[in-house]
Every structure is written in structure tokens, then in C-alpha cells.
Write a protein that binds this DNA or RNA. Sequence first.
RNA 1: GCCCGGGUGGUGGAAUUGGUAGACACGCGGGAUUCAAAAUCCCGUUCUCGCGAGAGAGUGAGGGUUCAAGUCCCUCCCCGGGCACCA
Length: 1056
Amino acid sequence: MYNHKKVESKWQQKWEESGVYKNYSKEKKFYALDMFPYPSGAGLHVGHPKGYIATDVYSRFMMLNGYSVLHPIGWDAFGLPAENYALENKVHPRAAVEKNIAVFKKQLKKFGFTYDWDREINTTDPEYYKWTQWIFLKMFERGLAYESDKPINWCPKCKTGLANEDLENGLCERCGTKIEQKKMRQWVLKMTEYADRLLYDLDKEKLDWEDSILSQQKNWIGRSEGVEFELKIKNYELGIKVYTTRIDTVFGMTYAVVSPEHKLIDELGDKIENLGEVKKYIENANKKTELERTELQKEKTGVELKGIKAVNPFNNEEIPLFVADYVLGYYGTGAVMAVPAHDERDWEFAKKYNLSIKHVVEPDYNKFNTKDIFFSSAIKKRESLNFKDSAIETLKYQYSIVRKCQSTNVFCYIGKDGILLNSGKYSGMTSEKAREEMAKWLEKKGAGKKKVNYKMRDWVFSRQRYWGEPIPIIHCEKCAEKKEQVLILHGWEDNSKAGFIPELRKNLESKGYETFAFDAPNTDEPDFDEWFSFIEKKIKTHNLKGFHLVGHSMGGHLALKLAEKYKLESLTLVAPVGFQSPDEYFNQFSGEMDKKELSIFKKFQDRKLNIKKVKDNTGKMYFVFGKKDPWITSEIRNYYIDNFKETAEIAVLENYGHMSADENIKKVDFIENLFKVSTPGVIPVPEKDLPLELPEVEGYEPTGTGEGPLAKITDWVNIKCPKCGGPAKRETNTMPQWAGSSWYYLRYIDPKNKKELVDKKEEKEWMPVDLYVGGAEHATRHLLYARFWHKFLYDIGAVSTKEPFKRLVHVGLINAEDGRKMSKRWHNVINPDDIIEAYGADSIRLYEMFMGPFTQSIAWSAEGVKGVRRFLDKVWNLFESKKFVECGGSCQDVPKEIPPSLHKTIKKVTEDISSMRFNTAISQMMIFVNLVSAADTVPRAAMEKFLIILSPFAPHIAEELWSKLGNKTGILKEKWPEYNPAMVKDEIINLVIQVNSKTRDTIEAPADINEEDAVKFARESEKIKKWIEGKEVVKIIFVKGRLLNIVAKQIIKTTI
RNA sequence: GCCCGGGUGGUGGAAUUGGUAGACACGCGGGAUUCAAAAUCCCGUUCUCGCGAGAGAGUGAGGGUUCAAGUCCCUCCCCGGGCACCA
């Protein structure tokens, strides 16, 4: 009898002692990753480990195939669930988390997984979240983390703001409470800046992800291509921008709508005749929760702005303007053109308020094979719109449906492609063409342009809760009041009034900056030392301290040298010249410069730069280059990119040159943009002070005030400003649960590194993750967030790949036997501990892989577990009872079917593990074992190979039998067996004989039988004779190695 | 409404490029073993008709392409998941 308890604990102990999994010295690598668990209070149920089993099978498979396998595990333990659990059970979240982790760990260890526990990580460990905070600071530096006070989703029960990704049908994903829109200060990550790249890299060519998850993410990002254009307001110098994807229907616009949040209402003020009514409507709309706005979507409401008309730029028609809450403030421009004939929502609204409907696109009938196909769907659509004013039954028979309905103004054709009518010069064009042409026309006129929009919004990143990473930010009032100083340095033969400098100063001063720009001496023959001491004097006389520095060209060089000496708030370099560039670099300008000029140019740059000092002294860094710059060639550019890519934001602009006086002043935009991100008074915690530890606190109940519970700890909150030394306050919001999990896979690679988030060399060695397994519920949250962070880390040079997860497979759920979800509430939870106790870890491993296709949700079956245990017993008994023989080429006593079956099994198991079809791999092993069980004598070598391919699924029993065979080294040290292709092919096959495509007989035949012989055999068969007798054979189809199909027809006897 | 999956015995599910539908397992029926039960082993198990050989039907429904369709095409129904007033 197989004693699983004894065998499993014995080997688990031995494996752990020998560290057999931690073999990282092989040439090829494989990184297998599980979505790390959230250690909840309930412990594991049998559904949780399914994915872990799969990665473990895969990891062992890869180890046996000679790979170094990284297979780590850790804990994702910050966030609301742990905190809510702690609140309910009146314990500290840390204590709860620690206790839960201990339980989870004990449970997981019983499975015999190949985890390297030395790499265990925990997101709540300060040594870990130090780097979560570090990433946040880097984002803040680059303007990707910003404060906003726009309305956000607020959960009144959890008392915290939430990201869009945290909602389910307008309810809080955690507690099911209705979400409110609340205006409050919050931290937001600019995820939309990455929308394009997040979408573009979601490509089957680049990522081996399942279609369902790819499409879910694509939908979430929600890219749409359209046109943004302006509708002028009649009699006023005002306009509203609208966004549409259907500009081809613009001649059908009969009114326009702005959202309740739209600024136009305030701009027009009492020019709106019914302002009171309008304001009342807006007030009511704002009171609605997100849910109410969706629940009430059937009834559209709105109010006309009386006395106000908008003008359609295409035909100068004047149209009424409405405010209505079916238009969303946060998408597009917050205003739309309404075309009731071709948009269902506008159609509903127009019907209700009796607005005119103008039909401008009809279907392209040539595209439909039959009119019936088109009209059946058209009629369906009409039915769904409660179309009652005409008899559908009669319409079904009338192909003149379109014209008829046109005259009654009710037909809607909603298709994206059609032919335009009633559209001026665009009439007769296809929709597609018209969209192109109309966009061109608008662009030419300067009234609009093509625009891409995304549904995805920026990530609301702050939580007004306790149990999360503190956001490492300090608010300083004194710094907020202080004027920021900006010093701008010009270049060779330039001055402070030329180029982009005056425009930049104007822009910055209007934003409250104090700017300085001076004319350097001898700009014809600049001498570095002269310029340097000149500027130092100016810094002293104007008392510049902690200022921003901008330098262009040679001024950029100067700026860098100043940065070695002075503490800078920020450093912006526009096309800076280089440092000690090689002679070849200067020689290439000998055509443009004479000897004297060349020597001035060279001498100015003839010094070294202390890069470390610059980095230490400088806050944010922005480098801007033009790709068409004749002076700053790619070699100079690369010098800066190589040395500063981790600390500086570097932009290389396609169509720009040296960006000096001769270039368009507009180019100042990009420099000015760089200053937008610095909000005065918002001070990052200095990197050296990380981790900013979460302080202990008496009560961590949420306050509901918009401040986190941390606000109550005054001696933590009140702090000296690291910038000015004055009194300042810490940020009291914490990060959301999804922060720590957005980069954890990197930390496993180098979990104890104190200097870096991950060692560069190690990162390059292990990334990307080769196989990532986890639940599909993370498709639009964790996986999106992690990809976003990863791309950011790529941009700052912290990681070497653009995408983190090469192959992603989602694990199907395990439901309870009653078909419901496993839940405490239903009392149907199955604890893996009990299954392991009764049947062993190998049984649960094998069962969960055998129960069905891996990605599919399937109900648990107690009987099923018994079944696979029966299989394991059979394997065990095989090794107890059979006679094992050594045989080289052939053995007489061994049934001849065994070797081919073994090779088929090796082939199938190899292929099926690779494609994650574990269920069929196991069934093939069962077939093999059934065959072997029937024999008395078995070849030892075959059984050894079988144990190796069984071992990824059932490692304990395989290892035990392996050692019982007398092997001294562990089974994981073995090589995965290869199959012999010749053995896999059957020599004798059952050739199927069909008559008129119905199988009537099968004959045993050599696999390579040709058509002629097959027909001969077939004709000899009594069964076949019976079916073709008296018939004429009209055709013979022969599929080699498979079947023969005789097509025979009844002979029709004709009598004359 | 839109976007992804999926629909095969009593159950979980197999089925290469279209080529014997139901592998493997569970359950069930029968038998062996046992004082008996559990466990184990053997046989059977898509449905209908038939003692049987065998015949017919059959992969959600209907239609089509083909010598041949679970597989490809069209229309529709149902189930699961995601999104949802995104202009």
C-alpha cells in the first residue's frame, strides 16, 4: 500500500534540505510566475493552488529540460481587505497579516512546490515598499504622479477614493456600496500618457496572451479615432469643442449637447434666458450617484439653453443647444453634436423632446448579398427601439423601406459604413471617404482636427486609509508661497532677448515664476571661464537659491558645470554641447567653421563633467534634443542619454534642429511644459529617507474627511521641510492595494538588494517572465497597472524589456460541487489540507490538472480525487508486483505494444505540458499505465522514463519509486526523455472503409498501404460487397493512413 | 446593446490540416473476492429498435459547402465572462 503521508513528508524535507530547486547555473533560463496571493483570513481553499500547481508542473518540466528555473512566491498584503479584516477582528492589520501568512505558508508547503523560499517577498515589508515608494518618487519627478481635485469615485462605506478599475457596475468592488462622485484632493498617476503604448504592445506577435485577456484590456483602454471640431455660438465670441467618431453624419446634426459639468454654462451666464432652470438641472444631475446615472439611462433628460444657438460649420445651420447628463463630462470634450437619425441615444432624446431628425446616411445596398439580410437586422433594431408607429409586418415585404421612412423621419441606419445623402458636396460618398474628406476640410479651415480618445482614465492612486504604503510627499506652505526662480542661459552668438528666451520668460512669469536671463560677455568668442565667473557673480547679486536652471547649447554646457556646484531645483538642457568630445566630432564641422571658430568651439567644451555631483545637486532633469540638429549629433546626445537616462527625462524631437533663434517660437511649448509639473510646496521625501515607514497608530479607522487616519499622528505628520527647513506636513494618504503588486515580479530576481530595486545584470538575465499564471479577474487591473509601471521603469532605464510578461495563461476557477462559488457563506468550501491528509498532495495536484482544460471553470468532484488516487495506487502496485527486466534492443517477454506506447506517451506529455493541456497529458499516462498493468514483465528503462514524465505532476511518489529502483540521485537531476519518432508511428493501422461516407468496415493494414491495395482489400470484404453490390462505383477517395471512401450510385435501369 | 469565450453521453471532458464522435476518468449496471462491508480485480455502459448479427439516429436549432462537417460558411437560440449613455 502506498503511504502518501510518510512518503510526502520525507521528500518535502529532503528537497528543502538539499535546495534542489535553487539551481541557477544553467545556461538557459525560465521564469515561472504565479500571481502572488493575498493572505486573507479564510486560508486557502482548493481553488487557489490550481494555478500554482500548473506553474510547478511547468517549472519541474523545464528543470528536467535543463533550464535554470526561477519560481518564487510572496505575499501581497497591503490594502483594504486586510484592513477591513483587522477592523472586524479588532487586531492590528500587521498582526493579522502575519498570522494569515503563516497559515498560507504552512498550507502551500504541503504541496511540494519548487518555490525558492529564500526569495519570499512581502509588500508590507519596509525593505520592500521602500522601492514601491521609490518608483512613486520617480514618477513624481517626471510629472506622472500629480495632485488633482477633480471629482472621483468615493466609497462612503470604505471611506476612501477609488480608481475606475475598482468599480463593479457603479458599486464598490470590495463592499458593494453605491459609489458617489466626490470632489477632493487626491494623487493620480498619469496612466493615460501610456495609453497608446499600452495598447500598441498588446499584440499577439509580441505577447503570447490569450485572446480573451487581450481583448478585455483593449476594450478597457478603449481607443477611438474621431474628429474634434468647434461649433461657434451665435452672436458670441465663444465656441464649444465637440468630439465625434461619425463626422460623416455631421449634416444630420439637428442639435448639440453639453454635459452638466461643461464650462460653457458659466461662460454664458445670464445670456442664457432660462439660466435658473438650467442651473437647477445641473444641480440635480450632480446629486445623482454614478449608479443612478446609469440606472436611469432609459429616460434621457435635458434642458435647452434658451436664447443660445450653435452653428454647424459645414452648412452654417443654426441649431439648438442642450445640457443633458447623458453626455459625460470626463470623456472627449464633454460636449457632442447630436445626430438623431444615426445614433440611438440622440434618437431617444430627439423623440422625447420632439426635435427634428435628419437622415444623411443610407446603407450601401451593394454590400448586402440579399436585401433580406439587411432588412432583418434593420427591423430588429427598430423593434428594440420600441418602434410602433408603423407596421413592421408590412415593412418586411417592402424593399422601399428606406425612402418611406425617410419621409416620415423615423428610420435609423446605425451602420458605420454607408452612402451619404443630403450632405452637400459630400453626398454620394461612402462614409469612410467622407470621414477622411471632412476631417481634411476642418483641418484646412482650422476649425477641427483628427483626434484619438481613450476610455481609460488616469489612475486615482491615493487611499484615505491606514494599511498601505505612505505616499512619500511633504506639503510645505512656505515653499508654496515662495517664488520659484528660473535662470536661463543662452548660447554662442546669442543673447538674452533672442530665440525662445523672451517667450519662455513671459510664460513662466505669468505662472508666478521669477526669471533671470543675462547677456554673457564676448558672445562672439565665448570663453568658458569668463562666462562662468560672470554667471556666478549674477547668482550672488540676485541671491538665487535652489533655483531652476535652463541652458541652451553652450549655455547648456555652462549649466551642467554650474550644477556641479549649486543645488538646483531643476535643470533643463536644450541641445547642450558636449564634454571633451573626440577630434573626429569637431573635424566634421571644418566645412562650416574656420579654424578660429573651431578652436573656440572646441575649447569651450574641453573639460570633464562630474556626473555624480550633478545628479546629487539637481532635482528634476529635462534634456531636449532635436533630431535634425546639425551641431548636437547623435554621439553627443548619446553621451547624455547613457549617463543620465535613469535620472533625466530625455526627449528627442523628430522635426527639430538646434532650437535657437532661427526656429519657430512655438517650440518654447515643450520647455514650458516641463515646469507645469512642479507644484510649489509639494516636496518629495528625499530618496535617502526611504523607506518612509508606516507609523504605529492607536486607531486606524477611516476618518471620512478626505485625510487618512495617519493625520491623527501629529508628531509624524508635522515635520521640517527638507527644502526650506520650515514647518511642513506629511501627506497622510496611502497607496492603493495595487501599488506593491505592480512591480513585485522584479523584486524576486534580487530580493535583498539594498542599493537598487533590482540589479541590472540579474534583471537582464531573468526578464521577461516566461510564464505568468493567474486569475482572469486581474485582466484590467493588476495586469494593466503592472504593464504601465513596467513601461515607466523601462523609460528610466531600470528594466530592459518593454513588456513584463511574455506568456500569460489564466487559470479557470474551481467551483464547489453544488456548482456555486466556494464560499464560507454557502458552507461548501473544501480545504486542501483535508484532501492532502486523506489522499496526498500528489493526488490533489494530479486531480486539479486532470479535471478539465486548465483555463476553464469546473466544479470540484470528491469522486474525481478518488479516481486519480486510484491511478497513483496502480502506479505504485506496478512497481511492487511486476517483474522488471533489463533489455537493450528487444526483450522477448515484454509485450510488443509497450515500447511504442511509451514513446507516444512521452511525445504527448511533452507537447501537452508545453501547451498547458495537462488533462490530456495525464490521460495518456493513464493509458500507458493501463497497458503496462496487463503485462507480467516490464522493461525497467521504460518505467524509469515513465517516472520522469510523471514527476512534474506527482513528484513525491515519482521520487520515492525512483529511489526504490536503486537510484542514488534525485529525479530532478535527470534529463527529460526524448521520444523516437519512428516508434510513435503505427506500423499497422485500422484502415477505415466507407461506402458513401458511412463506415462499413475497418481492415488491419500496413500504415503505408497504397490506394490500389486498399481498394483490392475493400473489394474482398464481405461487409463492403454487401453495400456496393448492384451499384456503380463513381468515385474513390483515399486518404493515406486513414480511410478509403467508395462512392457508389444505384444503377438506374431504364427500360425503353 | 457591444466585445470575448463556450454549447458533445448520466457527469468532468477527448477528437491533429475536415477523415471511425465519445479517448481518459467519474458514476452506474453485472460478475469475482469476502461471513459481510470497504477496498481491489474483470466485463458492460451515447440513444432507439433487435435475442443476435446488425440497422438507424446522433455533437444547441435551422440551412449551406464537401465524397466526408463537432470541426468551414450563413441565420438563429441558449450559457459563462467582460464593458456599458465612451458620442
